[in-house]
């Protein structure tokens, strides 16, 4: 049984259809990476999997259960987290309050407290800044915070849109190290990335999306070596 299976997805915004039959799947413990040119529907695909957009056709299933029509607030308790593109921390809340927001589906206050304690152990950077307003963090720190916040509920699947956007090369490495660390604990990742080389280098498998359809599917290394992919997306 696959952790995530999105089959033949058609979706879009209002009358504009962006995805015309895209499919991805990920086994438990896998990191998959979705690359493709701008406008190919990568972000739309993630939003559809998470439920921010409902597919007009096709199914999304999670651990064998059909979740195509569920809203995000119903998917989060199942263990699906989404980290959208760019800064999405709550600037006027402290780092701790941001983490608390991430743990709301845990139910009890005690569970939230324990999860925060665990998070500051895993992310020492956050420990030093726990009382700071998230708005005052650097771009990289915000990305780490949003990762830690998604990780609060120990989700089975994390959907991540452009984790490297606007970050320095050093910070990108740090974020990807954290992704691999969380993945080793068994969390599946589906990452959409412009920085294709970096993402493919850690992905178990990759997909190339073009014009709303899945064009290619291979291992991460396989796509990195693929002549066509090199020419089109990796820049030689």
């Amino acid at each position: 049984m696959l952790r995530l299976e999105a089959t033949d997805i058609y979706a879009g915004y209002g009358k504009i259809e962006v995805l015309h039959g895209a499919s991805i799947r990920a086994a438990a413990g896998e990191i998959i990476c979705i690359i493709g040119p701008n406008g190919s529907g990568k972000s739309t695909l993630l939003k559809t999997v998470f439920g921010l957009i409902k597919p007009t056709r096709g199914t999304v299933s999670f651990d064998g259960r059909d979740i195509s029509r569920l809203d995000p607030e119903q998917k989060v308790p199942l263990g699906i987290a989404f980290i959208p593109q760019g800064r999405n921390v709550f600037p006027s809340l402290t780092v701790r309050e941001n983490l608390e927001m991430g743990g709301t589906v845990l139910g009890s206050e005690k569970a939230v407290r324990l999860a925060i304690e665990e998070a500051v152990e895993t992310y020492p950077l956050l420990k030093r800044k726990i009382r700071d307003r998230a708005g005052n963090l650097s771009g990289g720190e915000k990305q780490i915070l949003s990762l830690a916040r998604a990780d609060m509920i120990k989700p089975g699947l994390i959907l991540m849109d452009e984790p490297s956007i606007g970050l320095s090369p050093k910070m990108i490495d740090e974020v990807y190290l954290k992704i691999q660390e969380i993945n080793r604990r068994g969390t599946t990742f589906a990452i959409v990335e412009q920085n294709a080389r970096k993402a493919l280098s850690i992905a178990h498998r990759g997909y190339v999306l073009d014009l709303g359809q899945t064009r290619l599917e291979d291992t991460g290394a396989g796509l990195l070596d693929n002549e066509e992919v090199k020419k089109l997306y990796l820049g030689g």
């Binding site: 995000p72 607030e73 959208p84 921390v89 709550f90 600037p91 809340l93 309050e97 709301t104 589906v105």
Partner: peptide, 23 residues
């Protein structure tokens, strides 16, 4: 209360609040 914190979160970033499972 946590409710007030959620209000501020909605104010700061509505989408991000929804992403964490808040309506």
């Amino acid at each position: 209360s946590p409710f007030g914190r959620a209000l501020k979160a909605v104010r700061d970033d509505e989408t991000a609040a929804e992403i964490l499972g808040k309506n």
